[in-house]
Design a protein around this nucleic acid. Structure first.
Lengths: 203, 203
DNA sequence: GTCTATAGCGGGATAGAC
DNA sequence: GTCTATCCCGCTATAGAC
């Protein structure tokens, strides 16, 4: 068995697509096989079990998010620019991967220990890095040290960016809009969100 | 068949408990039957199908949330007091019903049309009421009309309150804390959150 | 009304031919 | 390597005794 052959790749691509849109229990080996144009037996041949396949997909997801955030954090920008960039990256990533947040939240609640371990990784986690960075940045941002602590700040930024995508069907229903308009709304919201956050940070 | 007899109630209570903690697909009729101390056949006798049972539980959930929010909105308080009360109600409700947010988000993503219809109801929805109220309140709140519009304000308040509960396993892992400490953290966060929101609202 | 037994099906996994 | 056929379990739902 050679690594990265056509069949292997087709299976992973199909698995990614279906796991992320349907969740673990909504996904069947049959559906993945059909999507990849192979038989169910091939799935087991290459990846042994549904669980194993799922773990690979979930790890990929972690990498997508981790890479983008680390890029921002490594920059030498001040806290305001960093927040603005985080808003941009979240909205962009979530518009391109609309099912990601629901996928992660669903899996977190159905199997917390396993999912948290895969998402946060064994080494230095995305969240730990983010946290450390904001502590450092905070020191150079005048007067806000006692107003919002850095843990809360990160939690607030992520909450404000991710939650609307989680309840997208509700938002679409209330405003009677479609996906395209929802995406525009989220894009337009970015600048207001940055302003909102900056003001909250000021003494 | 008389309404509200013992068996009927036991089944609904068991169904509520298991559906909310395990989600639709994580729940089996067997588990509900065991929890209620009756046979599977009785479940079907009273409620015909798993789907029917689920719809009843979901409608109950909507009522819990709706009641609390309407109470707040009906009051004559100004926008700052209303926001403070909403923060209080959300944190209190979510501490008492820890699985509620995950349950709703899970079901939204697995069957959006159906869930949104049940959650928002056929008549005047919770969200519509909230929205209208904030529009009115905004008019009496000096100078913030162009800063944050009322839709965004509501979305922000709900995001900031609900999202941390959704990622509780991650937060617990990062801070190495247990449920009790998580609840304290969310309780302590309330006042900071109100301050955060007020400042963002000021011109 | 409540139970036991079972029908019927969908899904993960494997055996074995090619 | 890839397929078809099949095993076997778990689940919803129903039949029928009491």
């Amino acid at each position: 068995m050679s690594l990265n052959n056509q069949t292997e790749l087709a299976i992973i691509e199909a698995a990614r697509k279906i796991f992320i849109s349907k969740g673990y229990s909504g996904t069947t080996m049959e559906k993945i096989a059909t999507e990849a144009n192979v038989s169910k037996a091939s799935l087991h041949y290459y990846y042994r079990s549904k669980d194993k396949l799922f773990e690979i997909v979930l790890s990929e997801v972690r990498e997508i998010i981790q890479e983008k955030l680390i890029l921002i954090i490594k920059s030498e920008d001040n806290i305001e620019v960093i927040i603005k960039k985080i808003n941009d990256v979240y909205v962009e990533t979530l518009i391109n991967h609309p099912y990601l947040p629901n996928f992660i939240i669903n899996e977190i609640s159905s199997n917390p220990e396993k999912i948290v371990k895969i998402l946060l990784g064994d080494k230095l986690s995305t969240f730990t890095i983010l946290r450390m960075m904001v502590i450092i940045r905070n020191k150079t941002f005048k007067g806000n040290k006692d107003v919002v602590n850095s843990y809360d700040l990160i939690l607030n930024v992520i909450s404000l960016n991710v939650f609307p995508f989680l309840i997208r069907p509700i938002i679409k229903n209330i405003f009677k809009i479609e996906d395209e308009q929802f995406n525009s709304y989220m894009n337009n919201r970015k600048s207001g969100l940055s302003t909102f956050l900056f003001k909250a940070l000021k003494q």
